[in-house]
Design a protein around this nucleic acid. Structure first.
Length: 542
RNA sequence: GCGGGUGUAGUUCAAUGGUAGAACGAAAGCUUCCCAAGCUUUAGGCGAGGGUUCGAUUCCCUUCACCCGCUCCA
């Protein structure tokens, strides 16, 4: 499928527009038009219905270890800044970076390591990307390169002290970048704000800085105790939330795939540590099935389990549900949803403070020296100090629940459904000649318009009958009325909008009270009584 | 962020240093008993800013956006 065709159809028919288009657009921001908002809303509502509202907590779903409860939440986009410091986003999202003017590479200012060396009367800071074991070897190799020396001249290199990170170096003009051929090619360190910063309070100063959330998940964790105290839910249970998140993507690209303002559909599922692996597997399979049930059924949808070395530091398992978007190279997939086993990382963080992995591979609170007293340590980012442990009222066991996080992108799902739906096929025109037809084959549940109603011709009282049917349909779901032009043209317009059914009032309606229903995909038509139309359509689109 | 490319009507595309055209689409009307091209009429455009010039959509600069590659990706 040609992505350009889909993009222009989205614009032409009102699925997606560029944000602020009349001012030239804004990179990484997209608006949903009249059809797009219906599509996206249907996707979000299907998710909420299937995950939360329609969930049966009295019986054990297929594949689940036991019955469980589901509940919802809607929290603010701006939260206490400490939330992001403790979660790790603050440190990770506010990096200082340096660029190499020669190689166009970019490096984390605090992660690039190197060592001062003197040779030929010049003092240069040699940097390396090598792992710790190869660091000494690579530094020597790079130093020889910097001074244009041969291997046998290694003895003329006079190394200082030991290696250090680049952020302890004041003079970048004498730094030899990792892959450069010349000295002093690095720019001054620049801050990259991957979180959107804002000010709370009219007199806002830097102390009033706050952030737009980069994920909805943290709002669930910080409300964990509130939900427990207010709802009588018992572990295992899940809290679901749909909402906007914001990330200052370095390179927004590929239509809405990587947007700076986007919407997430997230579940944080809390369970006993002993059962967490089974729950992880349940949610992984359950979420995959959700997409296939809604029509992402082809080979373009895949589940990919992360390899051990790919996992976040706190995770014991992560799977991505990925889609082969047409704008990606052949064989590549883009992430729609990540299902992560997060252990007790999040709840523990909000109790104790920002966690990091220690030498033994265990999570512990990150400590830094107290200012003025270098031998005294304090937590880098302090937690809430609240007790977020859970007590099982039957066994009386106290534990920090483990978390399974199915985190889905609503805009990415919408884009995948759009890509999957786009089809061109051949349909006969009135002369019986085959013409190319563009049809959006949405699953009826997510189709923006469920049914369109036409009088075959605009006379003989047909419009009046059609309008009456239209009103009855509209009372239950989105429907569309059209009496203009040739009926074939009206069918084709609905095909492009992805409307699954078209109802046509014709001459026969006047004599036997039946109308035709036309199927978008098969073009087949059958007759039903006017009185049965609403039920006939309802059972097919719900 | 870097390099290359592209910006003309809702869409797809022309042309031009001197009044910007087409097709499809849209709207109104006629026609029409089932799958877009039967007729009539109408509306609508040079991404933005600056410069050169008597005059710029065209040449130059800046900027914004999109596409491709690199970079990045919680």
């Amino acid at each position: 499928m040609d992505m350009d065709k889909l993009v222009s159809l989205c614009k032409r028919r009102g699925f997606l527009f560029q944000s602020s288009e009349i001012y030239g657009g804004l990179n990484g921001f997209w608006d949903y038009g009249p059809l797009g908002v219906e599509l996206k809303r249907n996707i979000k509502e299907a998710w909420w219905q299937d995950m939360v509202r329609g969930h049966d907590e009295l019986s054990t779903p297929a594949g689940a270890p036991e019955a469980y409860e589901m509940t919802g939440l809607d929290c603010t986009i701006i939260m206490h800044p400490q939330v992001w410091k403790v979660s790790g986003h603050y440190d990770l999202f506010c990096d200082m970076m340096v660029d190499c003017k020669e190689t166009k590479k970019r490096y984390r200012f605090d992660q690039l390591r190197g060592r001062w060396v003197v040779a030929k009367g010049k003092r240069v800071f040699i940097t390396t990307l090598a792992e710790a074991e190869q660091e000494t070897e690579d530094l020597e190799k790079r130093a020889l390169k910097a001074f244009n020396l041969r291997g046998k001249d290694a003895a003329s290199l006079s190394w200082e002290e030991k290696s250090m990170s680049l952020d302890q170096v004041d003079d970048l003009a004498n730094v030899f970048a990792p892959e450069a051929k010349e000295i002093g090619t690095l720019t001054e360190p620049r801050e990259f704000n991957l979180m959107f910063k804002t000010i709370v309070g009219a007199m806002g100063t830097e102390e009033d800085a706050a952030f737009l959330r980069p994920e909805t998940a943290q709002g669930i964790f910080v409300n964990f105790k509130n939900v427990l105290d207010s709802t009588r839910v018992k572990v295992p249970f899940g809290i679901a939330q749909i909402g906007k998140s914001f990330r200052n993507e370095i390179t927004p690209r590929n239509f809405t795939f990587r947007s700076r303002e986007f919407e997430q559909m997230e579940i944080e599922f809390f369970c006993h540590p002993n059962a967490s692996r089974k729950w992880y597997e349940y949610w992984r399979d359950r979420r995959m099935k959700w997409y296939t049930d809604l029509g992402l059924a082809g080979e373009r949808l895949v589940m990919r389990e992360h390899a051990a070395d790919e996992l976040s530091h706190y995770s014991v398992g992560t799977a991505d549900i990925e889609y082969a978007f047409p704008f990606l190279p052949e064989g590549e997939f883009g992430e729609l949803e990540g299902i992560a086993h997060r252990g007790d990382f999040d709840l523990r963080s909000h109790m104790e403070g920002k966690l990091v992995k220690n030498a033994e591979g265990c999570l512990e609170v990150e400590m830094i020296p107290v200012e003025g007293k270098p031998d005294k340590l304090r937590p880098k980012h302090r937690g809430s100090g609240r007790d977020l442990t859970y007590r099982d009222e039957v066994t009386n066991e106290k534990f920090v629940p483990h978390v399974i996080e199915p985190s889905s992108g609503a805009d990415r799902a919408t884009l995948a459904f759009l890509c999957e739906a786009y089809h061109e096929d051949q349909a006969p025109d009135e002369n019986g000649e085959l013409q190319t037809r563009v049809v959006m084959r949405f699953h009826p549940r997510i189709a923006p318009i469920k049914a369109a109603v036409f009088p075959l011709v605009k006379k003989d009282g047909l419009p009046e009958i059609a309008q009456e049917i239209y009103r009855k349909l509209k009372a239950k779901f989105s429907a569309f009325y059209d009496e203009k032009g040739a009926v074939g043209r009206r069918y084709r317009r609905q095909d492009e909008a992805g409307t699954p059914y078209c109802i046509t009032v014709d001459g026969q309606t006047l004599t036997d009270g039946t109308v035709t229903i036309r199927d978008r995909d098969t073009l087949e038509q059958w007759r039903v009584k006017v009185a049965d139309v609403v039920e006939e359509i309802s059972k097919r689109v719900m």
